[in-house]
Design a protein around this nucleic acid. Structure first.
Length: 563
RNA sequence: CGCGAGGUAGAGCAGCUCGGAAGCUCGCCGGGCUCAUAACCCGGAGGUCACAGGUUCAAAUCCUGUCCUCGCAACCA
């Protein structure tokens, strides 16, 4: 099988507060599972992410915390790293955009776009806060509505009467951060000529029609119908990357200009110029961006346009846009404190593999979905304990009790005693792992998970049909061994195919109970899953329950801890 | 005509890209098994696939229209 070269990115997180489950589900976890699958499949894959350190809201958050921006983001970056570790998100690097490397890459990126003639200058009016030293975008300004007089109207629209207006029509504008009056300024800015890039971009998007999720493709093509317009890429705030152009010394790049370049600079930080060449300038490397749906425009329009204008880096193969996760029917909210916040998970004994598995089962791949405690309990008990874990337990228990852990047979020994049930079982072992692998590769995680559980169910049904406990009772030892040998091979396969989602539990069952060498997540192990090749003399260890059941009490405890 | 998502058994959802006898999990009813974490397996009841038209030999699936629900314009993937 040909080995692929892959680069996986997951959206850079803003550092203005604590992460919640939605962040994990939106990009970190799918990117992690995708990466783990490919590693196990033997592909050459690198997973990069980090924090988006610039932008107005990070600047203001730092200010409110009484810290310098670089101090603030360094603390937040550390916290996020801990959370990633707790959730077993295995980044090759988790950095940020406040690095010297990032500055250099961004400046170079801009210089190329400038040199290639895809920028233009325009003059525009904007409101500025003298106190916070920031330019105020529409959503950061409030004042009196020129139509109805409502005094909490935003920069471009009044919530009360619904009317929209120009920024300079707003009466007595104030800064939303400090409440001081905002002043009008006329400034020059640099724009990227998206209109000139549209034909090339459309061609690229068209080629992704059958690869991207439908909602990503649709949302993207909608922009083309309206026609792309030049977009401002500079800002008047003191926090960010300085624009390297005469007459713009006091300006920085718009956060959404430098943030996606972070994928490149973080790659460079990890492996130097060599790795950038290998992953971003090598047409054999496939790039996957895992993002939430609010980022689709930036990853499907803005960043690829920048790359086309820069002409130095390859565009993504797949922009994997996830929808949103709700929490018990409500939106995650920092202000109302709705949802599981990951800093609380840090001090909690919640089983991460169980949580990861439940989250996969409700991944908002095609539409928004909902986290519920009841669902978490159900998935853990019915799927992980009842089907998946139970199969290991039943198999190992019988091998141990009746055969002291060693069956003393292999596939050759049973080939002439197979009935229809055995053949079905063998067929499942030989075909399902590859099918599940393809689902992971296609980023269809929910279906992959369902198939893994179905795989375990096939095992349970097989046991029921063959009833080795009865065979043993009747003295039919050869057939009992045959059944358990096939089950043992399926157990091995189940550990491998489950490893991208449940890295801890599968490693545990592999080493401590199946007593196999290495790890189920080793490179090229995926191909081993469909082989029936457990050695004749192999001795398994004694089983113990893999997942813990969750009762109502445990759920109540969780609710209380996360409330 | 702001933008977006959705309406499929009691609940929660999948299926819709590429039309071909309505599926999954839970719950409920009945049976089986006893190796297993009161776990597992089989069977059953329960649906005019929001509504109305249209295309078709055939529509949950494609087209048109109508009704209803929910998100976004405040932190926020």
């Amino acid at each position: 099988m040909e080995k692929k070269k892959i680069l996986v990115t997951s959206a850079l997180l803003y550092v203005n507060g604590s992460a919640h489950l939605g962040h994990i589900v939106g990009c970190w976890l799918p990117g992690d599972i995708f990466t783990r699958y490919h590693k196990t499949n033997g592909d050459d894959v690198v997973y990069v992410s980090g924090t988006d350190d610039h932008g107005t809201s990070s600047y203001i958050s730092a200010k409110n915390a009484g810290l310098k921006p670089e101090e603030y983001i360094s603390i937040m970056n550390g916290k996020l790293k801990d959370i990633a570790k707790k959730f077993c998100i295995d980044f090759d690097i988790f950095s940020g955009t406040n690095t010297q490397t990032h500055k250099e890459v961004t400046v170079d990126f801009f210089n190329e776009i400038y040199k290639n003639g895809y920028t233009e200058e325009k003059t525009s009016n904007m409101l500025f806060c003298e106190h916070d030293k920031v330019a105020l975008a529409d959503r950061f300004v409030y004042g009196k509505c020129p139509y109805c007089g409502y005094d909490k109207a935003y920069g471009d629209q009044c919530d009360k009467c619904g009317k929209t207006y120009e920024l300079d029509e707003l009466i007595d504008p104030k800064c939303t951060f400090c409440g001081n009056s905002a002043v009008k300024k006329t400034t020059k800015h640099i724009y990227i000529s998206l209109d000139k890039l549209q034909p090339q971009l459309e061609k690229w998007v068209e080629s992704k029609k059958d690869i991207w999720r439908p909602h990503v493709y649709n949302m993207t093509t909608k922009w083309f119908k309206e026609g792309l317009k030049p977009r401002c890429i500079t800002r008047d705030i003191p926090w960010g990357i300085k624009v390297p152009l005469e007459g713009f010394e006091d300006k920085v790049f718009y956060v959404w200009f430098d943030a996606p370049i972070g994928y490149i600079s973080i790659t460079k930080e990890l492996g130097g110029e060599e790795m950038v060449k290998d992953r971003w300038q090598n047409k054999d490397c496939e790039i996957f961006n895992f993002i939430g749906k609010d980022n689709i425009d930036f990853h499907a329009i803005f960043f690829p346009s920048m790359e086309l204008a820069c002409k130095k880096y390859n565009l993504a193969n797949n922009v994997v846009g996830f929808n949103f996760l709700n929490f018990e029917g409500q939106k995650f909210s920092k202000s109302k404190h709705i949802g599981i916040f990951c800093d609380k998970v840090m001090e909690n004994d919640i089983d991460i593999d169980s949580l990861r598995a439940y989250l996969v089962s409700i991944f908002p791949e095609n539409k928004d979905s909902d986290f519920t405690y009841e669902g978490f309990k159900l998935n853990t008990n019915a799927e992980l304990v009842g089907k998946y874990g139970n199969f290991f337990n039943r198999t190992l228990n019988m091998i141990n009790k009746n055969f002291a852990g060693t069956l003393n047979i292999d596939f050759e020994d049973i080939k002439n005693m197979l009935d229809d049930n055995d053949k079905e079982m063998i067929d499942a072992i030989q075909t399902l792992p590859n099918q599940i692998g393809e689902l992971f590769a296609k980023t269809e995680f929910r279906t992959a998970y369902k198939e893994i559980m179905r795989f375990a169910s096939i095992g349970n049904t097989y046991l029921e049909k063959q009833a080795p406990w009865t065979l043993i009772k009747n003295g039919d030892i050869d057939n009992a061994k045959k059944v358990l040998y096939l089950c043992l091979n399926m157990a091995k396969a189940l550990a491998i195919v489950g490893s991208p989602i449940m890295p801890n539990k599968t490693a545990e069952i592999w080493t401590e109970q199946l007593n196999l060498e290495g790890s189920p997540a080793e490179p090229n192990m995926w191909q081993e899953a469909s082989k029936i090749n457990i050695k004749k003399t192999h001795k398994v260890s004694s089983p113990k329950p893999l997942f813990a059941r969750l009762d109502d009490e445990a759920i109540e405890k969780l609710k209380a801890q996360f409330a």
